[in-house]
Design a protein around this nucleic acid. Sequence first.
DNA 1: AATGAATGAGTCTTCATTCAT
DNA 2: TATGAATGAAGACTCATTCAT
Lengths: 183, 183, 183, 183
Amino acid sequence: MEATAQVLERSGDADFTTNHIARRAGFSIGTLYRYFPHKKAILKEMVEAALRKQDARIRGWLAQSDGATAEELIEHMVQHMLEPFLSRSRVRKSMLMSLMHESELIARVNAAHLEFIRLFHARLAEMDPLRFRKPTDLTCHTLAGALLGSIRTSLIFNPSYLQDADYQKELVAMVTHFVTARR
Amino acid sequence: MEATAQVLERSGDADFTTNHIARRAGFSIGTLYRYFPHKKAILKEMVEAALRKQDARIRGWLAQSDGATAEELIEHMVQHMLEPFLSRSRVRKSMLMSLMHESELIARVNAAHLEFIRLFHARLAEMDPLRFRKPTDLTCHTLAGALLGSIRTSLIFNPSYLQDADYQKELVAMVTHFVTARR
Amino acid sequence: MEATAQVLERSGDADFTTNHIARRAGFSIGTLYRYFPHKKAILKEMVEAALRKQDARIRGWLAQSDGATAEELIEHMVQHMLEPFLSRSRVRKSMLMSLMHESELIARVNAAHLEFIRLFHARLAEMDPLRFRKPTDLTCHTLAGALLGSIRTSLIFNPSYLQDADYQKELVAMVTHFVTARR
Amino acid sequence: MEATAQVLERSGDADFTTNHIARRAGFSIGTLYRYFPHKKAILKEMVEAALRKQDARIRGWLAQSDGATAEELIEHMVQHMLEPFLSRSRVRKSMLMSLMHESELIARVNAAHLEFIRLFHARLAEMDPLRFRKPTDLTCHTLAGALLGSIRTSLIFNPSYLQDADYQKELVAMVTHFVTARR
DNA sequence: AATGAATGAGTCTTCATTCAT
DNA sequence: TATGAATGAAGACTCATTCAT
């Protein structure tokens, strides 16, 4: 896993071949296949690991955030969506690109993100039904697409933005706009 | 060009091979290489054609929209960003996926979209500097990422949304939020 | 086809690999795949070609053998079963061995041989129902297995037998015994 | 040995890999290689064991069959040739197929069978030189090929025949025909 | 003596690209 | 100018065999 990350980090998705991964990781191609049945499984495992981690963090925070204000909640939502991309951004970028071949995986990731958004949105709506609108498929889908879309674009073209406080404020404002009830 | 579109439309990313394209176009692979030096050049030409068209349309509208209100302007901005994806969505989806391998192309597309957004945003700021904020790199980048990101996600997972009035309203509201001056 | 035969003739079934076949045949691996979709298809085509040829010869002879005696008929049956193995016996031997991996092909060949035997046996039974017994599945199967089994064994261990008049007489006697009515 | 048989029985030729065999046998691949220098050696040992068993049985019977009639002798010859295929026919079939790659082994088996046939034939010729002809290389080779060929074909395509009394009668008749002196 | 992780040569197959006709 | 047969580098994956522990 770590080795694959390094391969993606160094060579990008162009050299994301089984032989390269193995060689760069310092073991043989045969060994790689002791641990992963397919090339796809390598990518899948990286994706699943990242999602598991993110999922744990998000649910963990939600569980112990009873006193949090809506503002804090939203800030954390953005924080949690950004977080996987803050470190190792080259790896994330390559994963993103490699993902495009595997529609199942890309769907998997999308579904996970959608679910994260849904959780947050529902939580806000519960907190203050007057201030926040009820989450719908359309709302969540649009928000998820916009939030992750912007993050993705930053990852690829302006990775430095991801750490930028102003950028994060823009995202927070956008999310706030999305979840706020229309008058 | 048309043949390539048909190949992408029918077989998707999978059969996007030079031989397939040539055969579908009714000429030989050799002839294909008289007109395009690379496979990549085919994709690039499709992308450029689409961007040229979109560019012409956007500049055309901007040029003759002197009397338009800000609301109309924003609605048109969303309309113009959506438009290339409304027809032949399978082709667009496949192009999107094929694009991911060609970072130059993806950068080209992104730059074009960024420029479109910048044009619109500048126009709005000119119209009513109090109501709309001044476009900055950060602003435009974030908006472009969010808008196109949501559209891309819809294209892939909910193509029907693209035609949905409520979805379009969400986008318009989002863009409005983005361009509006913070108090 | 001819090239494949040569590969089998020279290297035996050990080097029956796509790369070897192509290289030995003097063209590239890519060219090989222009003509055959699978490795298996190469073998299949060789087998089918051989069976087609044998089938044509057998049916041809049967069609114009109205005046023939039973003895002549039997001699010809043996002749026709032997004939594919008389020339290029190394190729035949390698084909036989390569065949073992492809149970479909081996079944195909067996079925064809069974059918040849059935045709002959039926013809004899028609000619002289008293002297010859009626062909049954069991009879034909046993005869086919014995006749081809002996030929195969000779091909592998005593190819010179195949041309030997005494050997052929043994086969003729065996076949005669099989088709003759039990008293 | 037993494990190998089980692997062949369950998975057939396809999973006949050293790792599979070792795992099924309950020890490690390394241990397997302590006992067998090659994969081929495993197959060879299975073959040799089967031949030893058959050899013992045949010589045993011959040694204590002084009072037997020619008919009994022939029947037993057929019985003894059939016997290894009556149980575990899937194993035998797989062995047969795996054997095809190892010309040495296949030659070994053939030689053994030839020798069995020679023994029997010689015994008959001794018993009644007028009724039975003298065994020659040609005779024995042809008979061995025919007998085993038919059995092999049955094993692969009609395993039920192997137990069928009529089928066995056919074989007995065939053998009788072969050994009987030509008038 | 037993283990099993590691090895890597070798297999089939794809597809962008070239070039003689 | 058009053709399409030919090319071959490169990729995913298998499995007999080795060797440090």
